[in-house]
Nucleic acid binder design. Structure first.
Lengths: 236, 236
DNA sequence: TTCGGTCTTTGAGCGGGCGCAAGGTTCCGG
DNA sequence: CCGGAACCTTGCGCCCGCTCAAAGACCGAA
């Protein structure tokens, strides 16, 4: 566990692009890898932010709970993603909870290394900034959707976004390759599981998707795109 | 106009903190300053992103228009803010339009300088990252609000956020010190101007605020806070 | 001062989607 | 194989907040 992480695990990640082997080793020497079983949390909302992470395998769900107890899903963390970078948000605690929805492995660094690493590795700093830029854009997109679109269209966009980030081509469509409940979709979309259920049922009748207990297969992403007709990039 | 910008104009800005005079001069030598009259745009959605900016004086409103023609306000730009950093979002065009709602002055750099400046001035890179972090947090806050709160509460939060960012203490309350229409508030809150008007009228009757044509005075921010009782930081 | 444009107020009506509730289905541990 | 937990479906009624509509208030320009 304390042995230095092998470079090959991360060298292909965009986050570490344009880095020499020596630089990579320097960074990896400060990390440890951890395994997270389904349902266990990597960190929890409000907890002191003493580590930051990169996800190697698996899938995480990042949630926030409002003072009134309502939960929303901020985003899904996919392999290769940097997460838990509270320092970059100028915070000392984690603003949300991240929990494994699939068996996951992540690299963890002490948060005290953050400044040091940024200072020593400018190219990583720039990559990290790009990461944040991408996230900011996604947040703006969701804001626009929540402000202007009706529920059905928002669900369409949400589902298509999931497919773009974590979709797996399969006979007959694109499968969201981790367990998603209707409740999850509701919390990503700003609605209730009831409404999501009704909408998906309708789509299923129309042959657009195929649902199931925590399962989702998009049989016709193209027609969904028309439904949520603003444009979600990718997927054609 | 082409003379190098005086250091004193920016040296106090958090964005340029921890920078030597020589570094500052290096950066400023690449900038030009521009004036924007009320109602004129600094850049427009979709336009090639060839410059990035720092606002010195005034106030800007950043909007996005959906394919269906609906407009939303992404954020207000306050003096000292970095904006138009499309490069950091991995974009070649501006994702929104920024327009002066008050007489404004900004410094402008060619976007081609972006990488060079980041590379030469790590402390600025880190500051820029913090900027983005703050914006990301605000976006998440708004997402949470839009997903879970009712309109009246959202309006309260929006108005309090404005007050924190651009409020000016005044006899009898805190004034939003630039022109805001009900339409603006609606576009920041994800509702219609009608609803905003009704809500503000009710608040006025209750002695919470004092409105007017594109004017807004918060007479009792504390009670508004109770209304939007999740916590907006600051202001006490 | 008048005129046109922009911003605001207020009313009336209706409909999307939420709350509530009950029942069904799938999964897993014992 | 059984029982309980988690997840999903569906019906019904209601209300928040939107749409539509019309008129009033304020502002700057000529």
């Amino acid at each position: 566990m304390n042995a230095t992480i092998d470079r090959s695990l991360v060298s292909a990640l965009p986050l570490f692009s344009r880095m020499s082997d020596a630089e990579l080793d320097d960074i990896l020497s400060m990390a440890v890898s951890r395994r997270y079983a389904v349902g266990t949390s990597v960190f929890e909302q409000g907890q002191a932010a003493d580590q930051f992470f990169v996800l190697l395998y698996g899938r995480l769900r990042v949630t926030q709970v409002t003072p009134e107890g309502q939960q929303i899903i901020i985003r899904m963390v996919n392999p290769g993603d940097l997460f838990g970078i509270a320092k970059a948000l100028q915070r000392n605690d984690y603003p949300g909870t991240s929990m494994a929805v699939a068996e996951s492995v992540a690299l963890a660094w002490p948060m005290t290394c953050w400044d040091e690493i940024l200072e020593r590795h400018p190219s990583l700093t720039i990559n990290a900034m790009q990461t944040m830029g991408g996230r900011l854009q996604e947040a703006h997109t969701r804001l626009r959707e929540l402000s202007t679109e009706e529920v059905e269209r928002r669900v369409a966009h949400t589902v298509l976004r999931l497919a773009n980030q974590s979709g797996k081509k399969e006979a007959g469509g694109v499968r969201i390759d981790f367990p998603v409940s209707k409740q999850d979709i509701a919390e990503m979309t700003g609605t209730t599981l009831h409404t999501v259920s009704r909408i998906l049922t309708a789509w299923e009748s129309a042959g657009l998707v195929e649902g199931g207990r925590r399962k989702l297969l998009l049989k016709d992403p193209h027609r969904l795109l028309l439904l949520g007709d603003g444009h979600v990039p990718g997927l054609l």
